[in-house]
Design a protein around this nucleic acid. Structure first.
Lengths: 142, 142
DNA sequence: ATGCGTGCAAACGATTTGCAGAGAA
DNA sequence: TTCTCTGCAAATCGTTTGCACGCAT
């Protein structure tokens, strides 16, 4: 019988992820937890993150070098506008979902899911003079 | 002085990728090359694939567990309709690019690039009774 | 001959997992 | 006590890189 147990680190990870304004890597979230005194094992961070994604409480988007996570309110389908530098993201509404089904049908495809991620720079990072092709902050050294 | 040298394995990788109908992982492409007698080192496959992506002759999309490649004709911006099982993909035209810029501007974002990938099952795989949530063929064992 | 490209194996970085101990129920 | 969850370290896995040799130029 699956028994769900409530623990301090579980709460810590959930809270930390919820406090983030944008997508964040598991490693960086782990780092942030350490900084805030709440020392949680990296493995646990990964385990919790995966659990959240499985239960639909978080989104994970694969990027070159790993994946980024973010807590998501809308259980519904939605898209993101992501800042390539700081990871800040806002949820945006879908454009023409029907267009997708139409195109898919034309090619005999059965649509299962689709991903639309818009990358760019948020106002802050843009003003800070960050170059569009810089390595994302989330995967930068030190 | 950068000197571009033509080699057998370079051609082999390019040709093999071109013959693929959809996205394929580096490992799988390497396997396919071996099967066809053209033995090319895995490292070389990666090196060539990256070179192709850099020069814009191929597309790479990050997926959980790695990345998938595909030769692309259109140097222009375009999107894909991808079969989650066999990796087959067709290039589709963008829907409302202007919609994206509008939304981005509303949030103060500077758009750099965007990704739209539609996943589902192609007619063949659908008829074969493949389940939507199966692990992609490209990353399945053996 | 010159030096780019390749193969191999070691190195890497992100993520996962085995296992013994810690703590929630 | 019971059994899940955690932490640590070792193990995986995709991908990159160092180095010595082969081959295109």
């Amino acid at each position: 019988m699956r028994e769900e147990r409530r623990t301090a680190q579980k709460d810590a990870v959930r809270r930390a992820l919820g406090e983030e304004s944008g997508f964040i890597s598991a490693q960086q979230l782990h780092q942030r937890l350490s900084d805030n005194g709440a020392s949680v094992g990296l493995a646990t961070v990964y385990r919790q993150l995966n659990a959240l994604v499985d239960s639909g409480l978080a989104d994970a988007i694969p990027v070159s070098g790993g994946q980024l996570f973010r807590a998501c309110e809308q259980r519904e389908h939605h898209h993101h506008l992501v800042c390539e530098n700081c990871g800040r993201a806002v949820e945006i509404d879908p454009p023409s979902e029907k267009w997708i089904r139409t195109v898919a049908k034309d090619h005999g495809f059965t649509v299962n899911r689709h991903v639309l991620e818009v990358f760019g720079l948020c106002a802050d990072c843009h003003n800070a003079g960050v170059e569009p092709n810089d390595r994302p902050e989330a995967f930068r050294d030190s």
